[in-house]
Simulated scan of single mutants.
Amino acid sequence: MEKVIITGADGFVGSYTVQHFLNEGCEVLALDMGDAPRRLKPEGKLSYKKCDVSDIAKMKEIIPAGIYDTFVHFAWAGSSGEARIDHKLQMQNALNTVECMKVAKELGCSRFVCAGSIMEYEVEAAIHSQGSHPGMGYIYGMGKHIAHCMCKAIAANIGIDLLWPMITNAYGVGEYSPRFVNTTLRKIINGEPLQFTAATQNYDFVYVTDVAQAFYKVAKNGKPFCEYMIGSGNAKPLKEFILEMVGSCGPDSKPLFGDVPFTGTNMPLSTFAIDDIKNDCGYEPEVSFGEGTKMTMDWLHTI
Results as ranks from 00 to 15, higher is better:
residue 167 I to P: 04
residue 189 I to R: 11
residue 144 K to L: 00
residue 119 M to S: 02
residue 168 T to G: 06
residue 121 Y to N: 14
residue 168 T to P: 04
residue 138 Y to C: 06
residue 140 Y to Q: 01
residue 166 M to R: 13
residue 116 G to R: 08
residue 118 I to C: 14
residue 175 E to P: 04
residue 154 I to A: 00
residue 185 L to V: 02
residue 108 G to W: 12
residue 147 A to L: 01
residue 186 R to N: 12
residue 127 I to R: 13
residue 147 A to R: 01
residue 175 E to L: 14
residue 132 S to Y: 11
residue 145 H to N: 15
residue 177 S to T: 11
residue 125 A to C: 08
residue 159 G to M: 02
residue 137 G to H: 05
residue 129 S to N: 10
residue 153 A to I: 12
residue 148 H to G: 04
residue 125 A to P: 08
residue 110 S to K: 15
residue 129 S to V: 03
residue 126 A to Q: 07
residue 157 N to Q: 15
residue 141 G to T: 00
residue 182 N to P: 07
residue 184 T to A: 15
residue 139 I to Q: 13
residue 182 N to T: 12
residue 174 G to D: 11
residue 192 E to P: 04
residue 186 R to V: 03
residue 181 V to I: 11
residue 123 V to F: 11
residue 180 F to I: 03
residue 148 H to S: 05
residue 126 A to D: 10
residue 162 L to V: 12
residue 185 L to W: 10
residue 108 G to F: 15
residue 186 R to S: 14
residue 158 I to R: 06
residue 118 I to V: 06
residue 115 A to S: 02
residue 109 C to K: 12
residue 149 C to Q: 07
residue 131 G to I: 13
residue 112 F to W: 06
residue 168 T to I: 13
residue 141 G to K: 00
residue 157 N to I: 07
residue 111 R to L: 13
residue 168 T to F: 13
residue 138 Y to N: 09
residue 107 L to N: 00
residue 109 C to P: 10
residue 175 E to S: 05
residue 118 I to M: 15
residue 164 W to D: 05
residue 170 A to P: 08
residue 110 S to L: 12
residue 153 A to W: 08
residue 111 R to S: 14
residue 183 T to N: 08
residue 114 C to Q: 10
residue 155 A to H: 07
residue 162 L to R: 08
residue 186 R to D: 10
residue 171 Y to H: 12
residue 186 R to K: 15
residue 138 Y to A: 02
residue 143 G to L: 10
residue 162 L to S: 11
residue 182 N to K: 11
residue 108 G to I: 10
residue 169 N to Q: 07
residue 130 Q to Y: 14
residue 190 N to Q: 12
residue 172 G to S: 06
residue 120 E to L: 01
residue 163 L to M: 14
residue 181 V to E: 10
residue 179 R to E: 07
residue 158 I to L: 10
residue 142 M to S: 00
residue 115 A to F: 04
residue 134 P to R: 03
residue 128 H to S: 15
residue 169 N to W: 03
residue 107 L to E: 01
residue 192 E to F: 05
residue 135 G to D: 05
